[in-house]
Write a protein that binds this DNA or RNA. Structure first.
Lengths: 109, 109
DNA sequence: TTCGAAGCTGCAGAAATCTTCAACTCCCTC
DNA sequence: GAGGGAGTTGAAGATTTCTGCAGCTTCGAA
């Protein structure tokens, strides 16, 4: 497997590694949305949101198009939903483990 | 949904956002491996690999245990394989799109 | 008990990423 | 065609992450 491929994969994941960007992707799972909607739900400055959207756009994870006065964003592929779901599962497993340890720790005392 | 949850998800993905860490996880998909094996395959300094393994350990994505003179690492949950697979699919979709554009661009000239 | 192999950790300089501000573009509507 | 709403962009300072070095611990063998 070529070395740059790991680079590409890592960049893919890193692109998702930001709370605002995760939030955007979760909102876009329900279909295309205008920036103004995202802005209304995400509590971040407009310019900051734009920056994060640009990161997702450059990575090819979302696409954007203008609809009259609004700019719409959409997931570029539905596979993104799978990725987020897999992430949730891992987080669940990890947190369960930790809670398990926590319980164990308490019982131990 | 609680705000810190986005933080946790983002951290999860960011943890995967490094070429060496991706490489490690892919190698661990085939079962537990000693550090020396990883080191033999990954072309990185030992201390650097240790740092990256520590990142994965802290995130709860891998676990480690000592086996005599060696330290073994393993995935903490098999869900990680799903995540990597989903990542590969997205990368495939994105690159295909780009190649499509590239072809289009050439045809256009 | 001393030595070497296998890893880990602390740290510091280098590099990448974040956030915010100011300025800018586009497209309606009047 | 002037004004304003909706977003984007560029840049700079602040923060975070990465990398490599030096030194340390642990375990097994001699």
């Amino acid at each position: 497997m070529s070395v740059p491929l790991y680079q590409a994969k890592a960049e893919m994941f890193r692109t998702l590694g930001h709370p605002v960007r995760i939030r955007v992707l979760e909102l876009l799972q329900n279909g295309p949305r205008p920036v103004r909607d995202l802005l209304a739900e995400i509590d971040v400055e407009a310019s900051n949101l734009s920056q994060q959207l640009a990161v997702l756009r450059r990575a090819g994870i979302v696409t954007s198009f203008r609809d009259g006065t609004l700019v719409m964003y959409a997931l570029s592929t539905t596979d993104v939903a799978d990725l987020l779901a897999a992430g949730r599962r891992i987080l669940g497993a990890v947190l369960t483990d930790r809670d398990g340890l926590l319980v164990e720790l308490r019982a131990q005392k």
